[in-house]
Design a protein around this nucleic acid. Structure first.
Length: 205
DNA sequence: ACAGTGATGTGCT
DNA sequence: GCACATCACTGTA
């Protein structure tokens, strides 16, 4: 088994970093010693300096500063009252991040269902805020900590995902910047978030 | 389809 | 200060 990805891994362009994280594992160790984990099946990149979808710079000065921390820190963006899990990228002073959007549950499914009761297990972690609730993450406690901390860390995929298994689309839930193919999904995986029809990107000819 | 959520920003007094 | 509007979402239907 590989070691947790170190903060230095995130000191660059969030787009290839997001692509490389697809198929990796998010691991959570609870204070009670329970191990919860899931395979990353959907992920997006945000790169504020060149990204019209990134509202941090234009509309959210304080949040932009929060995102411009040193690379490899856990961040929680909030949208519509829900926390979204991200990792800071690029050198300190530049707001950029990757957003983990959906997991395929691996370990601790029972605990996840306790944290977030749901009728269809399919809905347990198929959205960016859903997985935060299922893993029982407390933004106030985890926000700002290093990405390789014991309580929450990332493992790279055993081997890089072959290109034919990776679907590249526009990002979900944004207005501007839909032309940027910065969402990465494991093709055909049933655990990806419910995608809005208009969000799908036409394949290059 | 649509209400509700909460952090943040804008505009008015 | 106060009233809205906005948003990278979720829950119930």
């Amino acid at each position: 088994m590989s070691r947790p990805l170190p903060p230095a891994h995130f000191a660059g362009d969030p787009v290839p970093i997001a692509r490389g994280l697809l198929g990796g594992t998010l691991v959570r160790l609870t204070p009670e010693g329970k191990r919860l984990s899931g395979r990353i099946v959907e992920i997006e990149a945000y790169d504020c300096p060149r990204d019209p979808a990134c509202t941090a710079g234009r509309f959210h000065a304080a949040r932009s500063a929060d995102m411009a921390v040193a690379p490899g820190r856990w961040l929680f963006w909030t949208a519509h009252g829900h926390p979204l899990l991200q990792v800071s990228c690029r050198p300190e002073g530049i707001a950029a991040s990757v957003l983990i959007r959906a997991l395929e549950p691996l370990e601790g499914v029972g605990q996840m269902l306790t944290n977030r009761p749901v009728t269809r297990e399919r809905d347990l972690t198929n959205g960016p805020a859903k997985l935060v609730y299922a893993l029982g993450l407390n933004p106030a406690q985890i926000g700002g900590t290093a990405v390789d901390s014991t309580e929450l860390h990332l493992l790279a995929p055993e081997s890089p995902l072959p290109a034919h298994q990776v679907e590249v689309t526009a990002r979900v839930g944004i207005k501007e910047g839909r032309n940027l193919p910065w969402r990465f999904v494991i093709r055909g995986n049933p655990w990806v978030s419910p995608a809005l029809p208009s969000m799908e990107m036409t394949a290059p000819s």
